[in-house]
Design a protein around this nucleic acid. Structure first.
Ligand SMILES: [Mn+2]
Ligand SMILES: [Mn+2]
Ligand SMILES: [Zn+2]
Ligand SMILES: [Zn+2]
Lengths: 148, 148
DNA sequence: CTCCTTAATGCGACTGATTCGCATTTGCAT
DNA sequence: ATGCAAATGCGAATCAGTCGCATTAAGGAG
């Protein structure tokens, strides 16, 4: 219930109306540990008994991405975009090229590197995306720690 | 002319036939400093007087990506994929969100970080993509060095 | 060089994710 | 409560990318 108010504030700050659909979408995104497609999100909402149109899902996601509340990523292969709510600590992903599993990674080693590039290219970096591809443990990954 | 032989060898190694279209495509990709869309590539080839079909461009790119000779990237915004030949040193990109300029960056600060993640998640990393977004110098970037 | 097998290509039809137009509803400021 | 702009629903439209199938052209064997 307090998330509801947080979302309201976020939307307000961006001059977006606080609609029940946007609330539901933010809630569903927050609940998902992995990035989700517009269609998956749509189906999830419908299962919860929420009557919404797929166009609305796309439009809501668009505006949330534009306002930097949601991150949109196009992983290669699968032709659909995936969406993820932006959290305290932004995330990167390990994507298994075999089973398509996506593991979120919270660390970001890029800040100092970014500063260096900004100076070199006279470029002002406002964001970045990093996706790593390979094989998960089940599909033939390295035998490293099981993630303890 | 010696590139032609290099391409032939690359194709042969992957059991791909050495067709004139694939040669032209590799040549055009090599000549481009920036990633290009299938359509741009298609038009470039046509301008050179090469008669080719857009399906063939897509099919050639697909197989080259599959064989790890070409890198495919989906930059956000513009809904088309961009393609780039894989060079000695793989590249990342600075993308200006205003004018869409793409600056290639050759450094990759990523290798040791990758090793760490592999061990932690039992994941075997075979590749990665890193794209950075922001404003180029012309569009309001940092006043850093002009790239000397 | 000639033949043969099969990959590669052209072309048009098709797909499927995303977008759009427009009529209707809803949020929200006054 | 009222009015207006923003948001939504629904179907139509877009358009990058894919596919089927008939035709061409690599390139290996002889
Ligand atoms: Mn990061
Ligand atoms: Mn790298
Ligand atoms: Zn896997
Ligand atoms: Zn720019």
């Amino acid at each position: 219930m307090e998330d509801k108010n947080r979302y309201r504030r976020m939307l307000k700050k961006e001059n977006l109306r606080n609609t029940s659909h946007r609330q539901s979408i933010l809630e569903a995104l927050e609940a998902s540990e992995e990035p989700v497609s517009a269609e998956t999100l749509y189906l999830t909402l419908r299962e919860k008994g929420i009557s919404i149109s797929i166009s609305t899902v796309y439009r809501a996601l668009d505006v949330l991405v534009e306002k930097d509340i949601v991150a949109k990523t196009d992983f290669t292969d699968n032709n659909k975009s995936l969406f993820e709510i932006k959290r305290e600590e932004h995330r990167h992903h390990l994507v298994c090229v075999k089973c398509r599993k996506i593991i979120p990674v919270k660390e970001c080693p890029f800040y100092e590197y970014a500063g260096e590039l900004e100076e070199r290219f006279g470029f002002s970096i406002t964001g970045h995306k990093l996706e790593m591809y390979g094989y998960c443990q089940k599909c033939g990954g390295s035998p490293g720690k099981t993630g303890d």
